[in-house]
Write a protein that binds this DNA or RNA. Structure first.
Lengths: 184, 184
DNA sequence: GGGCTAACGCAAGGAATTTCGCGTTAAAGT
DNA sequence: ACTTTAACGCGAAATTCCTTGCGTTAGCCC
């Protein structure tokens, strides 16, 4: 969702109301029974407004997800590489396992083509790159970002997608062990 | 989709017509503009029939995907572990990169809860397990199925999902290298 | 071949979604 | 303060989706 040309009070308020309604409804029912009229009623915003601003349900949900992702917890900085990796892996596993996890995974597919989502992904990649470089500067050796993504992040999403059973903190730590073993 | 109680000529024909229409339409437009009335018109099968047999669009697409997956290429048996792994990884990368790749990835989420899909996944897991055990019996050492899935399969889907740019054969081979390195 | 009935076609009806025109509100600019 | 106009509310129309009842077709079984 692009910045409104008139981002003042009312527009922002309407946006927030609608966002809250979406999160609210998704916490008490599943995705496929969600509809724009329903969101309109819950939020107190008129249907026509929602249709005019977002157009489709996908675009609206995408907007909500991006809003939350941008407010998400920063990448960890614990002082050690293992600490950072474990903290990140456990946090990610918890997010995916959380009530909005399915929404994140789904949004990852829906919104891969939107410019905003690409921007978020590259921003996030830069942050992770920084995390790895901090470790390198501490003399903990260099870690490839792509390898980190493939060995740690990919399996977390994979489990959530195919087995519908997200991994726990202990499993997240075995992923970290695997990555560290590969670096030797 | 369960086996029809009367699997004879007409039912099978209707099913095939509808399946073809789905694949046909998905090749010329994207997912969210697909609808059952549209499929009915394209296939020449009446709306009511489609609704009665499949109920929802998700169930129908799921049926199509399962049909194709079950016809898919078997797990490789090249005589060496590396050969099997590379063949599988390259094949999977190609499938995900293909025109129906996005459909597979999406269906993986939609249908994770259906009984059929679970059955397919476990069947596939057994086949892969056999592949790994063949290598073990040849004296190539044992490989954990979960590790195989996480190190090779997960990254393939991950790239397709988040970067919308599936990996190539060369990259697939680096995944295999990574797994083999972990086994030492 | 002949009866049985699941599956299909058809058409109408109902329900939900999406759009549209118009008046009103309130944010932004001067 | 005053003007401008983007964004919203409202109601109704238009479109699309989904269901239902009934007659017909064609596999299946004897």
């Amino acid at each position: 969702m692009q910045q409104a040309r008139r981002p003042g009070g009312r527009s922002a308020r309407v946006r927030q109301q609608v966002h809250e309604a979406v999160l609210d409804l998704l916490s008490e029912q599943d995705w496929h029974s969600l509809s724009i009229p329903q969101i309109a009623e819950r939020s107190g915003v008129h249907q026509a407004t929602v249709y005019r601003r977002w157009g489709t349900l996908e675009a609206l949900v995408d907007d909500v997800v991006m809003e939350r992702l941008s407010q998400e917890s920063p990448v960890p900085d614990t002082g050690s590489l293992r600490g950072d990796l474990e903290a990140y892996a456990v946090q990610l596993a918890a997010d995916v396992a959380g009530p909005l996890g399915a929404l994140y995974v789904r949004a990852a597919q829906i919104s891969t083509r939107t410019h905003e989502h690409q921007t978020y992904l590259t921003d996030r990649a830069v942050q992770l790159q920084d995390m790895l470089e901090r470790a390198a500067k501490r003399g903990e050796g260099s870690t490839d970002l792509l390898e980190f993504m493939e060995v740690i992040i990919a399996p977390v999403y994979y489990h959530a997608m195919f087995f519908n059973r997200p991994i726990g903190p202990d499993h997240a730590r075995t992923l970290v062990d695997r990555l560290l073993r590969l670096r030797k």
